[in-house]
Amino acid sequence: MPRYEEVARDLRERIESGEYQAGGKLPRYEELTRAFGVGRGVISEAIAVLEREGLVRPVKRRGIVVLERLGRRRIRRGQLVMRDPQRGYVFPAASHPGEPWEVHGRPVRDYVPTPDRVAELLNTPPGTPTLRRRRITSPAGEPPFQLVDTWLSAEAVRDAPQVGEITTGPGGYLDRLEEAGHGPISWIEFTRTRMPSREESAALEISPEMPILETAIVGTSAQTSNVLEVTIRAIPADRVELVTELRRGDGASWPTERIQS
């Protein structure tokens, strides 16, 4: 076992035993190099391993902070979009029925250059100033769980100007788009894992070494067949797992038909 993995294992065991508690800090680099008899590079690699596992996070001017371990939440990724009389459309999410969630900070809306991935899905040139609606949410009392960015096309803003306001009214921005003549909107969802941007890791309060699960929902107008909105949801990978129910096709019914030799 490489020396950095031995160091990581030792520190991991100490964290899990409670010697280093959530909210506290690991010893400084200088102390760790002396304690383990290794160079700073070995300690840096060991800390990077613990960062990827979601156990610690180096914080400027604070040190190596031990993070609270949060259980994974299961998301059933069905194909059904529901409708709530108060909230409007409801997509498959990590929340449980009746569970209170909270918003971290203030939701914002601003015009920012379109990232490459969003530009690809929105069919617009990269870097184009585009309206972005951002919110950071989590179950009540927990650290930030997900960063949600909704990007709206110029066509969407032109036809439904209210989507650019902080408060979009009952049913949210999707209702405003459909009322403007784009309904019924259809959606397709893309899922992938990737490393977070510096901005995302700061907003989610995670290490840049922690991968994130990204879901991208793309909404298309029934009137023009153009993409109106792209919603990117970023969730730390150590906090969620996807669950999909597998169903038998007609050719896989039970009992199976066996070929007689």
Rank of each mutant, 00 (worst) to 15 (best):
D10K: 06
R14E: 04
T130E: 01
E19F: 14
P144D: 13
A234Y: 00
V42N: 02
R134L: 15
A154P: 01
Q146T: 13
V163Y: 06
S197Y: 13
M1K: 05
S253E: 15
V243K: 03
I75G: 05
I64H: 06
R40D: 08
L228Q: 08
P113E: 04
G71A: 15
L122R: 01
R239N: 06
R194T: 13
I47E: 01
Y29F: 06
S197D: 15
R158S: 07
W101Q: 07
E13G: 07
E99Q: 15
Q146M: 13
L152T: 04
P184Y: 11
G23Q: 12
A203M: 13
I166D: 13
G78Y: 07
M1C: 08
S221K: 08
V112I: 06
Q146Y: 06
G54L: 01
T168Q: 07
L174T: 11
T128E: 09
L242N: 02
E102T: 12
G88M: 08
P97S: 03
V148S: 07
F190V: 14
G71W: 09
A154T: 08
V81N: 01
R158I: 01
P255E: 12
R12A: 12
E120T: 11
E199L: 14
P115G: 09
L213Y: 04
I259K: 15
G37L: 14
G18E: 03
H96T: 13
E142V: 00
R247Q: 15
R233Q: 14
T124Y: 01
R248V: 00
I217Y: 11
I188A: 13
T191Q: 11
T114E: 02
A202V: 14
R12N: 05
L131F: 04
L242E: 09
H182P: 12
N226R: 14
V218K: 09
Y173W: 15
P126Q: 09
V118N: 04
G164M: 08
E214D: 03
S17D: 04
S207F: 03
E214P: 02
Q86S: 10
R198F: 07
I47R: 00
T193F: 12
R9I: 05
D159W: 01
R76P: 02
N226W: 04
E30W: 05
R135F: 06
A202D: 11
V218A: 14
W151P: 07
R132C: 05
T191E: 13
S17L: 01
R57Y: 04
S197R: 15
L213M: 06
I206M: 03
F91L: 13
I185Y: 05
P58H: 11
E165P: 02
E6K: 10
A202M: 12
S17Y: 02
Y173T: 07
L204Y: 08
D110H: 05
R134Y: 07
P161L: 05
L242F: 06
G54R: 00
E200V: 12
F145P: 00
M210Y: 03
T137A: 15
V240G: 00
Q21T: 14
I43E: 07
Q223G: 00
G141T: 07
I235P: 01
L11W: 02
P211D: 04
P143I: 09
L50K: 07
A8H: 03
G63K: 02
E102G: 10
S44C: 06
Q162F: 00
